[in-house]
Design a protein around this nucleic acid. Structure first.
Lengths: 211, 211
DNA sequence: AAGTACATACTATACAGTCGGTATGTAATA
DNA sequence: TATTACATACCGACTGTATAGTATGTACTT
């Protein structure tokens, strides 16, 4: 139950503002290079507020990973790729959707928890686990459609729906790494085209130019 | 012309020792969380030596990315995946080789420049560019074999050898991200199996269990 | 003699985290 | 209804330490 400040009630509560600031700044600078003062400045709150809501910088890292998991879950649940009747069409629509939302600056479309996991996997178990939950939780939302597609089309391969679901995430994350290294969003889109082609191949669809 | 210390001439020169320390520590903790003192301690040199060889911490970041590019280039050049006569076999052998070298701890097989690029892409243009050079330079070493395979097998698809070469790197990098997030090297191997299957599909090879 | 390759001691600052305090809301009770 | 008691949300000055970087000196090589 966040309290709104009487002085500037339109700002939203400090905790949420800090999480939003963390999401934006950590995506650009990384976790270690982001200071508590950076976050307070961006969120327009003081350090008192920061340490009132989060016991430590690491605790904020865990909280922002969970915040990311929650907000992205809602975002993808509401996305239109669930509309097709055929499960395989939904899977392909997901890939197309992931490609379509790659717009604007790198820090606006890349993945907070992928970036954080890479950085802190050896230094903070808590943050790593929160990031893992977000990534693999999202991957799991794809399994039902993949499984449905396998069933509906009578596919028999030496791979599992869980494995393919995780692979989609690996391709997406890897595309982000290349996009950052090359400073070019096209590199992320390019790998999604290969992923689309791969999935079509797995299900014996006629080859079709990926959009 | 590195001078060997009279006290312990077997140590090797300080610059190389610092680069090796940077490679190992940054892979585990990330660039920002790695301090100059960490590096000096691990390399068993003093800060004087550090700032004698590198003008700043950022300059070391650039140097270690170049060091990585050089050492990995030599490593992959000497690797056995170049032996097969057929270019497609060489491409598949590359993927198998990348899978085979995923052994031991995460920090021992993951990619320094992929990790660094993710972290510093917005804060250090110099380091980002050095990382990009390493990644895309390595990708380029695959192009000739892919091109040869396309030619030899008369493949006609809506993709280019350059693009597929980059995609292999995206899958590898993404596999590392998932392996870190899930604290499980199998996740990196799993995506290489999908990559193997994808390439076989592109070249109309009979489906075969990836090893 | 001059340059290279270090070592040692030091500095200024940036950083995470602390602490005493205030303002506001809420619930019980007299 | 007024009072008391307590909880929550936040403020901002302060602290100890960690950190990148510097200044100076020395040993070895050419």
């Amino acid at each position: 139950m966040p309290r709104l400040s009487k002085l500037s009630p339109e700002r939203g509560d400090a905790r949420t503002r800090l999480l939003e600031a963390a999401r934006d700044i950590i995506r650009a600078k990384g976790f270690a290079a982001t200071t508590v003062d950076d976050l307070c400045k961006q969120a327009e709150v003081t350090k008192g507020a920061f340490f009132h809501h989060f016991g430590s910088k690491e605790a904020l890292g865990v909280a922002v990973a969970e915040f990311w998991a929650d907000t992205t879950a809602a975002f993808f649940e509401a996305a239109p790729y669930h509309l097709p009747d055929d499960p395989l069409d939904r899977v392909l629509a997901y890939v197309a959707f992931r490609k379509a939302i790659i717009v604007g600056e790198l820090a606006e479309f890349t993945c907070l928890v992928g970036t954080m996991a890479q950085e802190v996997y050896a230094t903070s178990t808590d943050i790593r686990e929160a990031c893992g939950k977000s990534i693999f939780g999202h991957a799991a939302t794809l399994e039902a459609d993949i499984e449905g597609a396998v069933r509906a089309r009578g596919i028999r391969g030496d791979w599992t729906p869980e494995s393919l679901a995780r692979h989609t995430q690996a391709v997406i994350q890897g595309g982000f790494v290349l996009a950052k290294a090359g400073n070019n969003p096209d590199l992320a889109r390019e790998s999604l085209d290969h992923l689309d082609r791969y999935i079509r191949g797995l299900f014996n669809l006629p080859k079709e130019a990926a959009q």
